[in-house]
């Protein structure tokens, strides 16, 4: 039993009209690991998680969560699962304690057990002293913590966390990332979706990179980085560029990918020592000025750039 995958995803497809949201996604998540789905917005991460939560029915394929099929045993899946949705899904006019108590009942907890678990979760999320305040009065970070707390009430074996750090302050983000690691340490399996490369890199045992509904790579961080080979990523900023410099960079030998991203140009190169002077030369030739340069070790951003030709945050 311990060798059984916590989550087995087998060739999932989901479309909404003409839009193919998920196309043949397959992966396994071992028990007790953190598995991240990494990809830009619209990559199909939330649709995949929605199918794995039995919120959406796949057009094709199946998945098993702790042995329960999402197609034939939705209640079985839901009973072993805790879901932290991307949005805050709480009743703002109820207190944190009332919220937890209600959601606990929905997970089948009653009486003393419910009361005990609500108290424990309030302690875990650090809101015991403010438990009787209405959630509507909480800060964004506090709401996020309650949002996570709800999914922990019934001590699930598997937790899905769908971009839980979107739109919150760095302190709350740090707290959430720490809590994810703590959940793993308690033996829970975490399926984590994010479009922040750093989060996936920090937390995950395994990472699946998704783009346009497809899974384009899957493995450990090191395995994925190896896909880039010995390539280096150079991030540059340009002044007075009319677009011709970037085109010229693409033609330089040793440059494999160039992508513009929020004013920064990410360039993937085989050997930075040889290519970097050529980048300056091309900029000068086109009357542009390089105002900053950063040479980075290969990371998931570089992997994504290597695989898709686009920066992760495009």
């Amino acid at each position: 039993m311990s060798n059984m995958a916590a989550i087995e995803v087998l060739n999932l497809y989901k479309s909404f009209g003409e839009n193919q949201a998920v196309q043949g996604v397959s992966f396994d998540v071992s028990q007790g690991e953190i598995f991240s789905l990494l990809g830009p917005n619209g990559a199909g991460k939330t649709t995949t998680i929605s199918m794995l939560s039995c919120l959406l029915r796949p057009n094709e394929g199946d998945a098993r969560v702790m042995g329960h099929s999402i197609r034939t045993d939705a209640m079985g899946v839901k009973s072993v699962l805790g879901v932290v949705p991307q949005e805050i899904a709480l009743y703002e006019d109820l207190t944190a304690r009332e919220n937890l108590s209600f959601w606990g009942k929905m997970y089948g907890l009653r009486g003393l057990e419910l009361k005990k678990r609500v108290g424990e979760v309030l302690e875990v999320i650090g809101l015991l002293d403010r438990a009787n305040e209405r959630v509507g009065k909480y800060s964004g970070g506090m709401k996020r913590r309650v949002n996570i707390g709800v999914s922990l009430l019934h001590k699930p074996k598997v937790i899905y966390m769908d971009e839980p750090t979107v739109g919150i302050d760095p302190q709350s983000r740090r707290s959430i990332l720490d809590s994810v690691v703590a959940l793993k340490d308690q033996g829970m399996t975490v399926l984590y979706t994010t479009h922040y490369m750093e989060e996936a890199q920090e937390l995950s045992n395994h990472i699946a990179i998704m783009d346009h509904g497809k899974m384009i790579a899957c493995g450990t961080h090191d395995e994925l980085v190896k896909l880039v080979g010995g390539q280096t990523r150079i991030d540059l900023t340009l002044h007075m560029d009319d677009g011709k410099t970037i085109d010229a960079w693409r033609d330089i030998e040793g440059v494999t990918h160039v992508a513009a991203e929020n004013g920064t140009i990410a360039v993937l190169v085989n050997d930075s020592n040889i290519v970097l002077p050529k980048l300056f030369e091309a900029a000068t030739n086109h009357s542009a000025r390089i105002t900053s340069v950063a040479i980075r070790e290969p990371n998931l951003e570089a992997v994504f750039l290597h695989l898709t030709g686009r920066a992760l945050r495009d």
């Binding site: 039995c54 699962l81 879901v83 997970y107």
Partner: peptide, 14 residues
């Protein structure tokens, strides 16, 4: 719209 209904559907409640 508050996303609590989809969340209810993720609980073991028919």
């Amino acid at each position: 719209e508050e996303h609590t209904l989809p969340r209810l559907f993720t609980t073991p409640t028919s």
